[in-house]
Amino acid sequence: MTIVEAFKHLNDAYGINLSIVYDPFDRERFVHGFLMTLLLSIVSMALSIVIGLVGAWLLGGRSRLLKGATTGFVEAFRNTPPLIQLLFFFFAVSPFLPGAVNSAGQVTPLIGGVGWAIISLSLYAGALNVEIFRSGLEAVPSATREAAESLGYTRLQAFRHVVFPLAFRISLSALNNNMVNLIKTTTLAYAIGVPELLYASAAIWSESLNVREMMLVMLATYLLLIAGYTGIMNRVERALRMPGTDV
């Protein structure tokens, strides 16, 4: 008996319907959903880290205007529901943008659902990252920065070789919490029809009538996804550990 037959038998004999194993169509939808979740997670993580770094840099800079704008951005995105942010971008901002004309001559939105999901998630997690990196930078003792400057480092060299590496290590556990949260928050993209894991699973269970099984599969998949992320980050943390300190 092949695996496919075994899972068909599981359904026929016991009513446990894991269609994603024996049904090629459901399997493909599920795999695509998983890959979409992976894409949303990885791209949004990368962008949110860039946003966090730029924001923290601006907060430490001299321009009052940029500092005020950064603070406003952080407060706005930190203190409103991410689902509403996403819907706002997709339904309120998107229609005002000029469309693109495709090969068939039709006007389509310049940025689609996936694009808006990435933008929205990146801004949301990025706002939190600004705070995380800022407090990390503040936790680096000014005496350490001064030691670098007294050795002839320029401000930029001191930042690159001393201040940032220390701030990053200090920020790492808070950053990881936020990134795990971001992975979970990608499910919001369901609301604007992005075919990620939740969307794909819902499509499967409404046709194959296996809500309970798909719920369990989905939960297990997120558990594994986040376990994978945590596993990678544990290695990073070990590699960056500073022996003899708490960080």
Binding site: A143, S150, L151, G152, V162, L166, M242
Partner: peptide, 30 residues
Amino acid sequence: RRKVGIVFQQYNLFPHKTALQNVMMAPVTV
């Protein structure tokens, strides 16, 4: 600053680098 070294009460070493790297960093970077 390259002509004048300073040693502080609280050492202020770079905690993410080994003793050898602490000594090597400035000549290499600066």
